[in-house]
C-alpha cells in the first residue's frame, strides 16, 4: 500500500474525509432501515445511501485517481448518474407494490384508492 503515500497532503485529507463521511451517511441510512417500524418509513432510508454516500465516495475515488495517475477522467460520474437515476425508479416501484398489496389485504392506515369521478371506460 505504498501508492497512497504518493498523494499530496491536501488530496489525502480530502480523500479520507470524503470516504469517512460517505461511509458514515451510508451506515446511518442502514441503521434507519433497521430501526424504522413501518415499511413506508423504511422506504426513505436507502435514499440516504444513494444521494449522500454514493456521491461522496465517488468524489473521493475521483480525487484519488485523478491525483495519483494525473489523468482527469471522471468515469465515476457514470456510477453517480446511474445510481441517482435508477434508485428512485426502484423505490417508486416498491412503494407502489407495497400500496397495492396493503390495499388487497385491507390493512388499516393505508390510503384507499380514490374513486374515479365519473363513469369512464377503463384504459
Amino acid at each position: 500500500m505504498s501508492h497512497l503515500t504518493d498523494l499530496p497532503v491536501w488530496a489525502a485529507i480530502l480523500v479520507c474525509g470524503l470516504t469517512l463521511l460517505g461511509a458514515a451517511i451510508t451506515l446511518i441510512g442502514s441503521v434507519g432501515l433497521l430501526r424504522f417500524t413501518s415499511f413506508y418509513e423504511r422506504l426513505h432510508a436507502p435514499t440516504l445511501a444513494t444521494s449522500g454516500g454514493v456521491i461522496l465516495i465517488c468524489a473521493a475515488s475521483i480525487i484519488c485517481f485523478a491525483v495519483l495517475q494525473s489523468r482527469w477522467v471522471f468515469h465515476e460520474i457514470l456510477i453517480i448518474v446511474f445510481v441517482l437515476v435508477t434508485t428512485p425508479v426502484t423505490l417508486m416501484l416498491l412503494g407502489q407494490a407495497a400500496l397495492y398489496r396493503d390495499r388487497v389485504k385491507e390493512k388499516r392506515g393505508v390510503p384507499l384508492k380514490q374513486r374515479p369521478p365519473r363513469e369512464e371506460p377503463t384504459e
Partner: peptide
C-alpha cells in the same frame, strides 16, 4: 425522480 431521490419524501 426528484421527489423520491430526496430523503424524506417518497412518491407513491
Amino acid at each position: 425522480c426528484i421527489l423520491t431521490a430526496t430523503p424524506g419524501t417518497a412518491w407513491l
